[in-house]
Amino acid sequence: MTVPCRTEELMIHIIAGLMAEGPKGETRHIGCGVLSPIPGSAALLTRHKAAAAGKTIKVSIIGHGAEPYRTDGGVDIFDCAGQGRLDYFFLSGGQIDGEANVNLLGVGDYPGTTARWSGSFGSAYLYFMVPRVILFTLDHSRRTLVETVDFISAPGTSAENVYRPGGPFALITPRCLFMFDREAARFRLASIHPGESADSIREHTGFAYDAPDDVPVTEAPDAATLALLRGEVAADIAGAYPKFAHDVLGAA
């Protein structure tokens, strides 16, 4: 049985579902960068569900003050990625295009003459090294999901001679879930959230993508999952994102 939930909670539930298994069997280690409360909550939900099944997943949330989520400073998470000790990571972007190129830097001629954002952070490394990078955005519009990014902070695909164990796995938005086909270098519409249609997704997406004839509706979380999310996960994510935990998940 499913119950009504917020879009953020639906996104967290979907992401957690994607991470139930890892690229090589069981998921071992999930990393989350800064400004990522939805991925962070999804990582913790995955961890709590695995724990209920007697399995241990390590979650490293940059900016989380408490063990066991604290990393050994910034160097550690990149070294983990370089050695293949990280299964999942998350990236967002001011622009994301149809080949999964991510732009965190700005719009207009370099270095960002129309709009200048913060910068590329760790994306130009982690996108290559982490086997499954999940892209996320809270703005599913033609402004963000563009045909071609103005600046490539991190490329979605690479030439065959480039060492690249990692790359894009999925793209989650408030409207739908896309999965990424690395061979074709294209997104494929996997499910649409309640209230959306194949047409509304196309209307708000600036890049071309593949879609099946019948697109399934995204499965909402069940009551037990929502209770876990609004209880233990909310209390946990408050260590890194107190405002998000309170406003979105209803933590005290």
């Binding site: 400004l35 990149f78 003459t113 954002w117 490394y125």
Partner: peptide, 26 residues
């Protein structure tokens, strides 16, 4: 961080008042 963008930084880069050498953390 959670407060938002850095306004003086963004203005200075956009206008060319400072030179930026963009990199990636590692």
């Amino acid at each position: 961080g959670e407060i938002g963008p850095a306004p003086a930084f963004a203005r200075a880069v956009k206008s060319g008042a400072i030179r930026i050498m963009d990199s990636t953390c590692p």
